[in-house]
Design a protein around this nucleic acid. Structure first.
Length: 232
RNA sequence: GCUGCCCA
C-alpha cells in the first residue's frame, strides 16, 4: 500500500511508451486507494483516467461508491451514484446494499427505504440481503413495527424471508424489550417454513437471561436440542 | 479489477 506512488510511476511510463492502461488497471488502482480508506485519491485516479480518454465503467463506480461507504462518506457516495446513473450505469445490488446499510447506520432510514424503492422501480431487482439490511435499519431506528411490515411485504414481492431476516427482527424486538413478541416470531418463522437456527436461539436465550427469565431460557434451550440445533 | 445481511 505504500507502493502506490510506484504504481503511479509505472502508469506514467506505460503511457510514455504509448501503451494506454486499460480500465482494469485503473480500477485496480482505485481499489487500492479505497481499501486504504482514501476514496478521494481513488476519485483522482478516476479523473485522471477520464483525462486520458479511458471511460470509467461500472466496476470503477462500484469500487468508489463502496470505498465511500466504507468510511461513511455518504454525500460523496450519493454524488457518485448520480454520475453513474447519468452515464446509464446501474450499480449492482451489492453496492446499493452497502449504501442502504450506511444510510441506516446514520439514522437515515427513510432515505434508505426510498433508495430501495427507486432501484426496484428501475427494474434493478433487490434481493433478500437488501431487504434484511433495511429491516435491520428499521429495527435500529426503533421501528420494529415497520420492519415487520417489510418482512411480510417481501413475500408478496416474491422474496422468501430467510432465517437471517427473522433473526434480525427478533434481535431488534429483544433490544426493544419486546421479548414476547420476539419469541412469538419463532413460531411465525417456522410456520413459514424457516427453521430457527443457533443464532435465533442465542438471541432469545440471551434476552431471557438478561431479564432473569431463566426458566424460559431453559425451555428454549431444550427445544433447540430437540431440533438438534448445535448450541454455541 | 469491486462485492452486501442476523445473536454473542
Amino acid at each position: 500500500l505504500n507502493r502506490l506512488p510506484e504504481g503511479f510511476r509505472l502508469l506514467e511510463s506505460m503511457k510514455n511508451q504509448g501503451c494506454e492502461p486499460s480500465v482494469v488497471i485503473y480500477n485496480t488502482l482505485v481499489h487500492a486507494f479505497c481499501k486504504k480508506g482514501s476514496w478521494n485519491a481513488g476519485k483522482r485516479v478516476m479523473m485522471q483516467m477520464m483525462r486520458s480518454g479511458c471511460e470509467p465503467n461500472e466496476v470503477t463506480y462500484n469500487t468508489l461508491i463502496s470505498g465511500c461507504c466504507r468510511v461513511g462518506e455518504i454525500a460523496e457516495a450519493l454524488v457518485l451514484l448520480e454520475s453513474a446513473k447519468s452515464k446509464g450505469y446501474v450499480p449492482d445490488v451489492i453496492t446499493m446494499t452497502k449504501l442502504i446499510g450506511v444510510l441506516c447506520d446514520e439514522g437515515r432510514v427513510y432515505e434508505a427505504a426510498e433508495l430501495m424503492q427507486q432501484m426496484e422501480a428501475k427494474g434493478c431487482p433487490s434481493d433478500i440481503i437488501a431487504y434484511n439490511t433495511l429491516i435491520m435499519g428499521l429495527c435500529k431506528a426503533g421501528k420494529t413495527k415497520s420492519a415487520h411490515k417489510i418482512l411480510r411485504g417481501m413475500t408478496v414481492k416474491g422474496f422468501t424471508p430467510n432465517a437471517a431476516s427473522y433473526n434480525t427482527l427478533i434481535s431488534g424486538l429483544c433490544k426493544d424489550g419486546k421479548i414476547d413478541s420476539a419469541a412469538y416470531l419463532v413460531d411465525e418463522m417456522e410456520n413459514n417454513g424457516c427453521t430457527a437456527n443457533a443464532v435465533t436461539y442465542n438471541t432469545l436465550i440471551h434476552a431471557f437471561c438478561v431479564q432473569d427469565r431463566v426458566e424460559e431460557a431453559f425451555k428454549l434451550f431444550n427445544r433447540m436440542k430437540i431440533q438438534d440445533c448445535v448450541p454455541e
